[in-house]
Each structure stands twice: as structure tokens, then as C-alpha cells.
């Protein structure tokens, strides 16, 4: 609609009207600072990442194993207090190719977020991470992948202790 209009009626504003103070506005920068106590469930998860393995929790009532571990079952509200060590391999549930970065820069080589259903966890339970060592055009839903870890001495108990997930070479490929 507006693309057809060459000249808008009225008095236009330019950036210089603001920078030169012809139009008055106030600029302020925020400095909010927070911490997040990770607690029992996520704290255990992060401690396991630092050790180089994946931890889930199990609900005996629903017979579900979830990752990351939680202290309460979302479905039945029972406590989830049994923890299970899981494989660092899984299957891509869904993925995307992102051509705009976190801080809104356009890029030509896309970032590769994916949800990976972890082996040993119940279906639909996985990790949100990035993919690596793979061409975007080769990724597909159902692809088997494995975590690539930071060296032990660099791990700090964070989700970034896993660098990315890479495809597992399938037999014969």
C-alpha cells in the first residue's frame, strides 16, 4: 500500500533532528544484573556436564526419563528424585538454519540449532543445542548425532561444555 506513495504529506523527521536536539528525547542504558541459583535438578545436570556426561531424571509414576533432570514431574506432580546417566548420542527431532545472529547481524554461513532426542531418555526428551561438522544441506530430521565436548580442563559446568553435536557416521556411508 504505502510503497505506492512517493511523497508523504507533512513534515518529515530526520536522524539529525534528534542528534542536533531539535526533537528532545531521553536516552538511558539499563544495567540489570541477575544470578540464577541452579538448585538440585539443574545443578546436578551442570555438575554432570562438567564431568563430561549427560544426566536425566526418572519419574516412577509416569515411567518417563527426562533431560535435563527436574525435581518435579510436569505430568503427575510427583517428585523426580531418581537420576540416570544417559548416552551423549541422540536423534535430531527438528532443526533450523539461522541466518541472523543473536545480536542481529546477517550471516551467510547459518547457525544450526537443533533439538536432539537423547538416547536413553523418553521420546520427545532432548537437548537444545547446535550442530557442527556438517553441511547444512546434509542435515535431516532423524539424523543420528553425538556430542562434541570441550576438553575436560576447560569445562565449567555449563551447557556450553558441549561444543556442538556432530553426525555419527552410519555404517556403509
Amino acid at each position: 500500500m504505502t510503497s505506492k506513495i512517493k511523497n508523504f504529506p507533512g513534515t518529515p523527521l530526520s536522524e539529525s533532528d534528534f542528534t542536533e536536539g531539535k526533537v528532545l528525547s531521553i536516552h538511558d542504558e539499563m544495567r540489570p544484573q541477575f544470578a540464577w541459583d541452579t538448585g538440585i535438578g539443574i545443578g546436578s545436570y551442570l555438575a554432570a556436564l562438567k564431568e563430561g556426561y549427560l544426566l536425566g531424571s526418572h519419574c516412577k509414576t509416569c515411567e518417563k526419563t527426562v533431560i535435563p533432570p527436574r525435581t518435579v514431574c510436569e505430568w503427575c506432580f510427583d517428585p523426580m528424585d531418581s537420576y540416570v546417566r544417559l548416552e551423549d548420542t541422540g536423534t535430531i527431532n527438528t532443526f533450523s538454519l539461522c541466518y541472523v545472529t543473536w545480536d542481529v547481524q546477517r550471516i551467510t554461513e547459518p547457525e544450526l540449532p537443533a533439538v536432539i532426542e537423547i538416547d536413553g531418555a523418553s521420546p520427545l526428551h532432548g537437548i537444545l543445542h547446535k550442530l557442527g561438522e556438517v553441511k547444512p544441506e546434509d542435515i535431516h530430521i532423524g539424523m543420528k548425532v553425538q556430542a562434541v565436548w570441550k576438553p575436560a580442563e576447560e569445562r565449567e559446568g555449563a551447557i556450553t561444555d558441549i561444543l556442538y553435536f556432530k553426525p555419527i557416521k552410519e555404517a556403509g556411508s
Binding site: W36, D37, G39, I40, I42, T71, V72, F77
Partner: peptide, 27 residues
Amino acid sequence: VSPELSYKELMYEAAVKAYADAGVDPR
């Protein structure tokens, strides 16, 4: 301070007690 619990776990503790006190299943 409560470094041993996440905010979710803090809420869960209060919720469990309240539902037990009321005798209701939240689900």
C-alpha cells in the same frame, strides 16, 4: 539467601505443602 534451591524448586516446595494442606491434587 537460598543457593541450594532454584526459584522453581522454591515454588515447588511451597506448592507441595499447600496442596497437601488443602488435600487437593493440582493435576
